[in-house]
Design a binder for these strands. Sequence first.
DNA 1: CCGAGGATCATCT
DNA 2: GATGATCCTCGGT
Length: 187
Amino acid sequence: MLTRDFFNRPTMKVARDMLGAVLIHNSPAGKTAGIIVETEAYLQGDPACHASRGKTRRNAAMFGPPGTAYIYLVYGIHCCFNTVTMPTGTGEAVLVRALEPLEGLELMKRRRGIADVKGLCSGPGRLCQAMGLDRQYNGMNLSSPSLYIQQGAVPESIVTTTRVGISQGQQLPYRFYIAGNRWISRK
DNA sequence: CCGAGGATCATCT
DNA sequence: GATGATCCTCGGT
């Protein structure tokens, strides 16, 4: 299991090193797991980072200790899952944007309301729905038996691009994904 | 395959 | 009162 020491490092490193790791959720409904294949870094002083304009009710979890989950609602419908990084109080985090489904695919499909695995966890909102992650997990520490991240295979090659869906800081190369992976949210 | 448009609501100003 | 770190559907190619 990846613990606080892993997350208590520079956010860009954590964002890259999370690729290949496995996100696991043991819920009452069953176990689901997926390989992290796409991430984005959100840094201090970065206009796209929710914490860049100070602490508010929504982003309070970002100011918690490294390894804290930050889960919030976007567009009134979908959740996004982040892991808090760096020394406590900087408000930096890594957004998980896509998973390669590994375990509990039937449960994932049921939660998503789809019959095919196509795009099952490809996108921040989709993966939260498939994994059963919602705001009740906001602020939870990731070294918990029900929600944690495990070390996985180190990717052969990582692609760096600009981030998706933001209006500020669009030119910053803070998105990472496993080269050639079929489950990323978009090329 | 691709782009446009709409859904939907907690949080922030 | 405005705004999203999104996704689905639908219509056109």
